[in-house]
Design a protein around this nucleic acid. Structure first.
Length: 425
DNA sequence: TCTGGGGTCCTAGGACCC
DNA sequence: TCTGGGGTCCTAGGACCC
């Protein structure tokens, strides 16, 4: 517990982040409703404000295509190169305005405002104004004595945008009570669909109900996670700012194929390419992995068609970050897993049991990665860093594969490709 | 025809130990 | 009929997050 009188957190998030990013470079669309699709143009994962009434989050694109056309809503494939860059710009601006920042996701960050005193709401408005001025992106700011309350404040700033101007500080008890009473318990950070269903029969329907529930009893009945949530809602800080980035403990690369695949060869190519990407991430955080998990599966929604999902964990001869070794292991695994007669839709490569280079000790009986491998991988990464991802790759997968995911509605890489810069006439 | 991708944390239960 | 009591470690799966 870190509960002290002057605890203050802010949660800053970008409104309709992906959709807003698309708009920054297309001012002609400032009044056009837009949505952004998941990888493979599968379903809707972001909506501009005026598109929200017409499309639900997560709806399959093919189901809403007509609705989009009817309402003049424009769809974009997701352009992660663009969103990642815009995110970095936003975070850099906020970092300059607060003492400590925890980047929580691509479009959200917690700030520690402890000890700042003064008018925190005014600081919130400064953040909003500067981010808007320097990036063109709209953000909302929620402030409170705990992370969970800051998160709820941010939600309130969104729901009551007109009245609040996008900034809400819940330090004042009367204001806090009002917001708690007017928020559904399902809107509380950490309360998902399942937990909401457990709480409702107990008469806990609003955030206020939960804030005044018996933390210890519910903690014992359900989980310590719930207990912390309750205490945080009631004003006791249990979750600290985590501004030190730890290396990931597992790394995953999984994707749907552009079309269903029935043959082993293209699936093996896909697995090799996902392994290549996963190994890049692994080296990016200077880790080695001891195990690798490969999975393949058919579609899950096509009733009537045979479904099949399987996976295998492979133990590596020694902790490694060598793409060649990992590719060998992954391809051998997928060959064992593959069963003919199915239409596969997705493959997944996970790197497990990661350790930091030098953290494990090899003994007489344990082999270790040859030093030469490290050099080769270093050169590989340097070339791809300089000339763009995918410049140098293994021969196990082609440059422009037939199984690549669909991205038919992609905007330009305005910020990462010289040949795709914005043109001003 | 077409339904994302990447994580974290916690818990329960099994295996094993004394 | 009676069938210990704890402790640790590991793993799979659930729940949640964006």
């Amino acid at each position: 517990m870190t509960g002290t009188g002057d605890a203050a957190f802010a949660l800053i998030d970008c409104n309709s982040f992906y959709a807003s990013c698309e708009r920054v470079f297309r001012p002609d669309l400032s009044r056009t409703p837009i949505v952004v699709l998941s990888n493979n143009d599968g379903c809707v994962i972001a909506r501009s404000a005026c598109a929200k009434p017409h499309v639900k989050m997560g709806q399959p694109y093919f189901q809403v295509r007509d609705v989009l056309r009817r309402h003049g809503i424009l769809a974009f494939s997701s352009n992660y190169a663009l969103y990642g860059q815009m995110s970095e710009r936003v975070m850099a601006i906020i970092e300059g305005l607060v003492p400590r920042l925890e980047v929580y996701s691509i479009d959200e960050a917690f700030a520690d405002l402890r000890g700042l005193g003064g008018n925190l709401e005014r600081l919130g408005r400064t953040i909003r104004t500067q981010v808007k001025r320097d990036t063109g992106l709209p953000v909302g700011v929620g402030i409170g004595p705990t992370k969970t309350l800051a998160k709820l404040a941010n939600y309130a700033a969104k729901v009551w945008q007109q009245q609040t101007g996008g900034v809400v500080d819940l330090h004042a008890p009367a204001y806090r009570d009002w917001v708690l009473r007017h928020c559904d318990v399902g809107e509380v950070w950490g309360i998902g669909r399942r937990m909401k269903a457990h709480l409702e029969p107990l008469g806990i329907r609003t955030a206020w109900d939960l804030a005044h529930a018996d933390a210890r009893a519910l903690g014992e009945r359900f989980s310590v996670v719930l207990e912390k949530t309750i205490r945080e809602l009631a004003g006791t800080s249990c979750l600290a700012l985590e501004d030190i980035e730890l290396p990931r403990r597992e790394i995953c690369c999984s994707r749907m194929f552009g079309d269903r695949l029935s043959d082993l060869a293209p699936i093996r190519e896909a697995v090799a390419s996902y392994t290549f990407r996963a190994a890049e991430k692994l080296r990016g955080q200077r880790s080695l992995c001891k195990k690798l998990r490969v999975g393949i599966r058919t579609g899950m929604y096509n009733t009537g068609e045979a479904t099949y999902a399987t996976a295998q964990i492979v133990e590596l001869p020694y902790p490694t970050d060598d793409t060649r070794l990992l590719t060998q292991a992954a391809c051998a695994a997928v060959e064992r897993l593959f069963r003919p007669g199915y239409r596969y839709s997705k493959a997944e490569v996970m790197l497990l049991e990661l350790c930091q280079r030098g953290e494990y000790s090899d003994d007489l009986f344990t082999a270790a990665q040859p030093a030469a491998a490290q050099k080769v991988m270093g050169v590989l990464d340097a070339i791809n860093e300089r000339w763009g991802r995918g410049t140098l790759r293994t021969g196990a997968f082609p440059n422009a594969p037939g199984w690549a995911m669909r991205q038919d509605l992609m905007s330009q890489r305005y910020t990462t490709r010289l040949d795709q810069l914005m043109k001003v006439r």
